[in-house]
Computed example of a mutant assay.
Amino acid sequence: MELQGHERCVSRVPIFSHLEMDELEEVFQKVNHRQMKKGEYLFMEGDISSALYVIHKGKVRIYRLNDNGEEQLIRVLTHSDFTGELSLFSDDNESKSYAEVLEDAEVCRIDQKDIYDLMNKYPNISIKVIESFAERLNDSESLTTNISLLNSKEKLLEYIKTHRSDEQLVLTMTKKHLASYLSMQPETLTRTFNKLEAEGYISKINNKSYDILK
């Protein structure tokens, strides 16, 4: 059996990728597929939600607002990324974040009850979910540490170190969103990029790509 079209979005999600083809087909039978436009929201702060959202096409940004109403970008989701997993295993299903569509998107939604049924039938899904939680917790703790302890240059260098591919950095988000993710103003990010270029750390290819020289 071969999965077609947006069914593949489920097969590439880490918590399902180990399943056999017929098992993946069973997962897909529980999926609600939705087309979304740029500017729409999967959910907003205060919404009640207990579902897993998988991005098949497009981009979705997850962010929170601090006490001053300033945005803090958490992550940008693209093909096969997912969000909403925390609400599946908590009594508090009130969202603390916003999920805004950055590019027209196709999104697969799986409700909490269906996830539980799948976990009971295929216990390895539970293990994959725990692994996913651990990875995201580690990322969150690293980001918190970087924001509180590092200066702007150190933050950007750490980002380059963890997101480089061989000798290049290709940004997967706009610089405005990267600035939010690194907890700095866009103007500060621009100056920091320029400083790293002047110091010979990077060489600009275009607005989203850089050669890494050191």
Results as ranks from 00 to 15, higher is better:
residue 107 V to G: 02
residue 107 V to E: 01
residue 107 V to P: 07
residue 108 C to M: 10
residue 108 C to G: 09
residue 110 I to K: 05
residue 110 I to F: 04
residue 110 I to W: 07
residue 111 D to L: 10
residue 112 Q to P: 02
residue 112 Q to D: 05
residue 113 K to N: 08
residue 113 K to E: 10
residue 116 Y to Q: 08
residue 116 Y to G: 08
residue 117 D to H: 11
residue 117 D to N: 09
residue 117 D to F: 04
residue 118 L to G: 03
residue 118 L to S: 02
residue 118 L to H: 10
residue 118 L to D: 00
residue 118 L to Y: 15
residue 119 M to P: 03
residue 119 M to H: 04
residue 121 K to T: 05
residue 123 P to L: 00
residue 123 P to M: 04
residue 123 P to H: 13
residue 123 P to F: 12
residue 126 S to W: 15
residue 126 S to D: 09
residue 126 S to Y: 15
residue 126 S to H: 09
residue 127 I to P: 02
residue 127 I to T: 04
residue 128 K to A: 10
residue 129 V to L: 15
residue 129 V to I: 15
residue 129 V to G: 06
residue 130 I to A: 13
residue 131 E to H: 07
residue 132 S to K: 01
residue 132 S to P: 00
residue 132 S to Q: 05
residue 133 F to K: 03
residue 134 A to Y: 05
residue 134 A to D: 11
residue 135 E to D: 05
residue 135 E to R: 09
residue 137 L to A: 14
residue 139 D to T: 08
residue 139 D to P: 04
residue 140 S to Q: 05
residue 141 E to Q: 13
residue 141 E to V: 06
residue 142 S to G: 13
residue 142 S to D: 14
residue 143 L to S: 04
residue 143 L to C: 00
residue 144 T to E: 07
residue 144 T to M: 10
residue 144 T to H: 08
residue 145 T to G: 06
residue 145 T to S: 14
residue 146 N to S: 12
residue 148 S to E: 14
residue 148 S to A: 14
residue 148 S to H: 02
residue 149 L to F: 09
residue 150 L to H: 12
residue 150 L to I: 00
residue 150 L to F: 14
residue 150 L to P: 00
residue 150 L to C: 07
residue 151 N to A: 04
residue 151 N to R: 04
residue 152 S to D: 10
residue 152 S to F: 00
residue 154 E to N: 05
residue 155 K to M: 11
residue 155 K to I: 06
residue 155 K to S: 08
residue 156 L to N: 07
residue 156 L to V: 06
residue 157 L to I: 14
residue 157 L to E: 14
residue 158 E to A: 14
residue 159 Y to P: 04
residue 159 Y to V: 10
residue 160 I to D: 00
residue 160 I to H: 00
residue 160 I to V: 11
residue 160 I to S: 01
residue 161 K to E: 13
residue 161 K to G: 13
residue 161 K to R: 15
residue 161 K to S: 15
residue 162 T to P: 01
residue 163 H to Q: 15
residue 163 H to G: 10
residue 163 H to D: 08
residue 163 H to P: 11
residue 163 H to I: 04
residue 166 D to C: 01
residue 167 E to M: 06
residue 167 E to Q: 12
residue 168 Q to K: 13
residue 171 L to V: 11
residue 171 L to Q: 02
residue 173 M to D: 08
residue 173 M to F: 09
residue 173 M to C: 01
residue 174 T to Y: 03
residue 174 T to C: 01
residue 174 T to H: 09
residue 176 K to N: 03
residue 176 K to Q: 12
residue 176 K to I: 07
